[in-house]
Amino acid sequence: MSAPLLAAEGLTLRFGAIPALLGVSLEIHPGEVVAIVGESGSGKTTLLRVLSGQVAPQSGRVLYRGQDIAAMGEPALRRLMRSEWGYVHQNPRDGLRMSVSAGGNVGERLMASGARHYGNIRAAAAEWLARVEIEPARMDDLPRGFSGGMQQRLQIARTLVTHPALVFMDEPTGGLDVSVQARLLDLIRGLVADLGLAVLLVTHDIAAARLLAGRILVMRRGEVVEQGLTDRVLDDPQHPYTQLLVSSVLAA
């Protein structure tokens, strides 16, 4: 078996008296999609932010390719976030430059990594826009004029253009209309499979977790109450909270 891409050991973080994370450990391997599900207040978003180095835990550590990210230093971490990692925000406005054209948004990571040929950058941007099903002719338009679903797809293109090994996704379909969500989920599913991405997906949508993830972690009040293969956890839930969560999902 290959070594984990990202490994977290005993992460603990309290905001005052509120336990956000209590001894959370997890691993993700190259090409794996792991969903972290839970309701609001479960700590799942905090976990994502700790795993991606945005927030430091009070105890425990996060290892990327065996290296402690706390010991990496900010320059190395920022370089990582620009190249090997990607982060898809729930609100696409947080992950886009709204006053830069769609093509410029997609090309930025390339330019930040040293790309200096305008024509090539534009060609790469056009290819990625097509891949996320945005009409390449809209390349020079500002994201302000895009629908929510389009903005989210643009954010995904912008994140994936440097072929990151690991992508953190924070409720990527949150706030979108149901039909738009389905299309976006399928797009993510296809891209993940085509590119062999490892994805840490935070979501409260169990159906999305079932569609996209091979493994799932169920969080409640800062703790991982159950984890395992997605279909196992969802079809044969053991923990009372998991059973509650699964039974609460309305079938269409």
Partner: peptide, 14 residues
């Protein structure tokens, strides 16, 4: 080689 599915971890089952 034989593996015990009941005791195997998630990735092994996958």
């Amino acid at each position: 080689s034989a593996t015990d599915l009941a005791a195997a971890g998630a990735r092994e089952v996958a």
